[in-house]
Design a protein around this nucleic acid. Sequence first.
DNA 1: GCGACAG
DNA 2: ATCTTGTCGC
Length: 229
Amino acid sequence: MTIIEIPADWPADEAEALAVQDELRGRVVLDEPGPAPGTGLVTGVDVAYDDERDLVAAAAVVLDARTLTVVEEATAVGRVSFPYVPGLLAFREVPTVLAALAALRGGPGLVVCDGYGRAHPRRFGLASHLGVLTGLPVIGVAKNPFTFTYEQPARERGAAAPLVADGEEVGRALRTREGVKPVFVSAGHRVTLDNACAHTLHLTPRYRIPETTRHADALCRRALKAITA
DNA sequence: GCGACAG
DNA sequence: ATCTTGTCGC
């Protein structure tokens, strides 16, 4: 397998990355409802790292949104393109994730990624970044609250509490399993927050984490081991 | 100035 | 993210 190279024009430091976010943030579209939850295709994307060898493996797994069965899978391996800096996560994964999505034979439909979209220090997290670059509808489902503080949602599945920034509800702490820690949902691009939450609930009939990310997580780890070994 | 901080 | 055994619980 070929190793994806870091784009020549990729940001070299934090200042350049901030400038890129500042330029791209204006292209985010959040007034489209997005695909109807439970229909069409849903694609999960995730990455695994090998800091020792400076490698990152990305996976894109397409599911039938109605049955949640796997329709197609694709992977890509690249060089780590940026250090981990809270708020600049996208610069670390985007090149390789784009390659994995491009390796898909069919369209991805809605893309679900780890991390945040609109709920971000500068309102431009990974999900929004990926959306603007691909033009696809994207949502972000994170496992941790990042810098946000939130009220505990009611105990039942489906309960939610707002993630607020500057008086705006930028995301939601959504309980996908009764009595279990919530996940943190935000719209990335061309999807509404309400729909992002509805999609998340459709994708979690059994576990806290969406089936899409569970599949993508397992696949990128396998892909990384395959080349490491 | 220090701490916290998606993955 | 990643390093890691056993262990509690359904």
